[in-house]
Design a protein around this nucleic acid. Structure first.
Lengths: 341, 341
DNA sequence: TACATAATTGAAAGCGCTTTGGATGTCGCT
DNA sequence: AGCGACATCCAAAGCGCTTTCAATTATGTA
């Protein structure tokens, strides 16, 4: 069933039917009713590809999903997607997901944009000096970046959380508890959030004249295994750190396993603060020792970004170009006073 | 840059350029080279919407993502998507993801199909007597179902794992270890895999004249919290079960927390076998007591389904219509002989 | 040399929709 | 009766691509 057939069925022109469906005012209410009724009966749905071709809009937002045979799927990605989806479903938008090798992201993004299949782009996993920004700017297609790109002029639309502030505050808390030996368990070094979190830690330490030793920093994929390995390494250090900052509850999962295996007590021998993206699978309050965290919901960020993206496509009012969300510092049992030497 | 401009630039007709790009034989090799060269220089990419409109194909597979404000994102979904993506990227396919309220899945699937935006459909979260099957059959669009639908004639293309066999085998192992009091921690009752797994347990027990009490069965969302709750319930039973079968390592996570909190020892007081979808986040061998599991990689299933779907769209050879994968039973430390009463 | 055949290329139709630029009919007023 | 202002509706152009059908040129054969 297509427009032509439907309009013939109704004895109307395609023009009128199209207008009736798209809410144009210049169509008699009675005819509009008839059309809507016929649509219900026939189950007619406009062909999106044709709509897109005719209007240039198709109600879809595009994103690149990094993937490769060895590439681990990322819980954070799924959670974010759920947020995007939650908002998209309200506006009858859908996603076009282009899977791409992580090394090929710039090109993949470009293909996606030029394909004429999407109205707007969403970009995540931002890096320092991210090469995708220049490309995006040249594209004349709306986009929103999740995160920022350290070292690039912040003149692009983004939504980010205050990573530096979060880790600064967390570090201060641990300092107040008397800790002096710190370690940072971070995400991959090239990622923007990792850079900023590190800076937050360093600047809080600097205020007390402390520094973060090279050996007390790990940069790795945010999996529980990496957390385990990193923590094992920290625990073997001659000057064992007592305060651990951790970029994800996933990392914390492994880290805590290492702490337990070493016979140490979390919140007493070792204090740990992790960043909590509010993953449904990993609730900090459900850990055997509930985790002190800096919290910001990844899913909420997804919802918000979808709002901005869809709003822009639909030309629904202006949106702030840049948003920086504060995180919450939630104190639970994994932090305690520094142990006496 | 579109075809028309490109062809004018080259002094050729759109026809010839189009043919050159799509590998038709009736075009001079020299001209083809020229065209390809121009494409490289100009960065021309065909408009997918137009291609789709003209050919009816657009290199995309569609799927519905269940989502809603309260709806938890599902790790399993993300992992599966990674598998689909891994294969799709090899064929320059992409996904069209339509987010939809879980209650609205049939309609959403229908919309997606008629939208003319996708070449094939993928369907998951199968239920008993799933209403989507009839709809899919009426659609004349290729599709593959992940899982099966208990109670429906199995005359549709699917890829499933042998859930019944897996849980039958797991139960037998526990029986051989001397266990007599069983409990099953299952996924939502309406889902097909839950039905089959339950049947597997029941039939293995029946061979020994045992039954599964109503109170020894839980059907819930597969989150760690639900696992915790279910296990707490089991542990309070007057005839406490000693053998637990668990539909997911996520559930097991919570269940084990409950076991620990009750001061019981896993693998001694309580034996537990979980089904392992090979989630990168939750490795059974990394649990403090490594988990005995029935294993089948969700991601591998994603890859295979993408293969079949894309292969069918590309008319690349016939594929088996129905595949049933065996699971592996991997014995680790969470199972042991039944404790003496 | 003349003619069939193969190798290349193009013009134009069409995919299903939106939208511009009329056309037609109605109504209220002078 | 005559005229502008609305309210409705429609024909046809176009979005960017593929593909059928036909035209043109090059090649080989008798």
């Amino acid at each position: 069933m297509n427009l032509k057939q439907l309009s013939q069925l109704l004895g109307l022109s395609q023009t009128t039917v199209s207008r009736a469906l798209n809410g144009y005012p210049e169509v008699n209410e009675a005819t509009r009713e008839r059309v809507l009724q016929a649509v219900k009966e026939t189950g007619y749905r406009p062909n999106k590809a044709a709509q897109r071709l005719a209007t240039g809009k198709a109600g879809s937002i595009g994103l690149v999903m990094p993937t490769a045979p060895g590439h681990q799927s990322d819980v954070h990605f799924g959670e974010f997607l759920a947020g995007l989806g939650e908002e998209a479903v309200r506006h009858d938008f859908h996603f076009v997901i282009m899977p791409a090798d992580p090394d090929d992201e710039v090109a993949a993004l470009r293909r996606l944009a030029i394909s004429g299949n999407v109205d707007a782009l969403f970009v995540a996993y931002m890096r320092g000096h991210d090469p995708r920004l220049a490309m995006l700017k040249s594209l004349s297609m709306p986009y929103v970046v999740h995160g920022r790109s350290f070292g690039s002029e912040p003149d692009y639309p983004y939504l980010d959380i205050d990573n530096e502030g979060a880790f600064y505050d967390a570090t201060r808390l641990l300092l107040q508890l008397g800790h002096t030996r710190f370690a940072l368990m971070n995400g991959p070094m090239h990622l923007d959030f990792a850079i900023r979190r590190k800076n937050g830690v360093i600047s809080a330490l600097a205020e007390r004249g402390l520094t973060l030793e090279e050996g007390c920093m790990s940069h790795a994929l945010m999996t529980d295994e990496q957390g385990l390995l990193a923590m094992e390494h920290f625990l073997q250090l001659p000057e064992r750190p007592t305060a651990i900052l951790c970029s994800s509850t996933v990392l914390a999962l492994g880290a805590i396993r290492a702490v337990n295996q070493a016979g140490l007590r979390l919140g007493e021998d070792i204090s740990l603060i992790a960043h909590d993206d509010v993953l449904p699978l990993l609730k900090p309050e459900s850990f055997s020792v509930p985790l002190t965290t800096t919290r910001s919901s990844l899913r909420a960020a997804g919802v918000r970004i979808a709002q901005r993206l869809i709003g822009t496509v639909k030309q629904a009012g202006p949106f702030p170009d840049q948003e920086l969300w504060k995180t919450e510092l939630i104190v639970r049992a994994s932090t305690g006073p520094a142990p006496r030497p």
